[in-house]
């Protein structure tokens, strides 16, 4: 193709429906976020090492002192999975917030790339990161004696519920990242989300908590996901808590998708 013909072709790409262009933008931004995640060495190390340290700490340091009715490693793995997933997803707030401080965002804006495409890229990369770290945690758990009784169906259900929750938390964090004035402020959110795992059955049974806390501990989203994951993995009765977990996740996703789109357009 001659220089001129190339220039002409570049200037006027063949007209396509807007939805195809929008989907192409989303794909491009997912590729970008995945590449940036893979190249952020310290980010990857934190995402992979922290979960494993957390689990070893709970199983070996606290495990001896806790009575949960079943082997503590079997009890705590769902909780650790969730804390890790929650932490990993919440770091998306920091990633989005620092991304928004870079000049490249202005370029995207001036190229009419939608906020939705940008945020979807971040969220998909976050889910991918977390699936990898979840797999790693499960592998280490199996190595130190985790013996779940679940069949293939149970595993699929557990992974599905966790993945849905990670998606919800990632999108919520991305929204927080847009609102936060700085990456440091966004970082506070990570702490908040990790904290939610403590007033839940993640590490200790809820019956051991003061009675005024039990209602909150039982119904908050993190607990519904922990209980569902534990029940599906250890073959216990799943019951209505699974629906609560799914509804919480779907609700958080819906609210975050709407809010992030609106907030991104308003910012700048």
């Amino acid at each position: 193709m001659s220089e001129l013909a190339l220039a002409e072709a570049t200037r006027r790409p063949a007209p396509r429906p807007a939805i195809v262009d929008a989907a192409a933008d989303v794909t491009t931004m997912i590729g970008r976020s995945l590449r940036l995640s893979l190249r952020s060495v310290d980010g990857m190390i934190t995402a992979l090492a922290l979960p494993i340290m957390l689990m070893l700490m709970f199983v070996y340091l606290f495990g001896g002192a806790l009575r949960t009715g079943i082997a503590y490693v079997d009890y705590v793995v769902p909780g650790v999975l969730l804390v890790c997933a929650g932490f990993g997803a919440a770091t998306t707030a920091v990633t989005v917030s620092s991304d928004l401080t870079t000049g490249v965002i202005d370029r995207f804006r001036s190229m009419d790339v939608s906020g939705a495409a940008l945020i979807t890229g971040h969220v998909v990369a976050s889910v991918a990161r977390n699936l990898v770290s979840t797999a790693l945690v499960v592998a280490v758990a199996l190595a130190i004696g985790f013996r779940p009784s679940a069949g293939v169906g149970g595993w699929l259900a557990a992974v599905g519920v966790l993945a849905l929750f990670v998606l919800a938390l990632s999108w919520l964090s991305a929204t927080i990242g847009i609102i936060a004035g700085s990456p440091e402020a966004a970082n506070g959110f990570t702490f908040f989300v990790s904290f939610l795992a403590y007033p839940s059955s993640a590490f200790v049974p809820i019956d051991t908590m003061p009675s005024w806390l039990r209602g909150f501990a039982r119904d908050q989203p993190v607990n519904t996901v922990v209980e569902t994951t534990r029940a599906t993995l250890t073959g216990g009765p799943v019951g209505s808590v699974a629906w609560h977990a799914v509804l919480w996740s779907l609700g958080i996703i819906a609210a975050s998708v709407a809010a992030s789109g609106m907030l991104f357009n308003r910012r700048g």
């Binding site: 970008r32 590449r35 940036l36 952020s40 000049g103 202005d106 370029r107 001036s110």
Partner: peptide, 14 residues
């Protein structure tokens, strides 16, 4: 149009 600002609008890690 295109805009090139005072700070490189590029991804450092790409």
């Amino acid at each position: 149009i295109s805009l090139t600002g005072q700070y490189a609008a590029l991804d450092e890690a790409q």
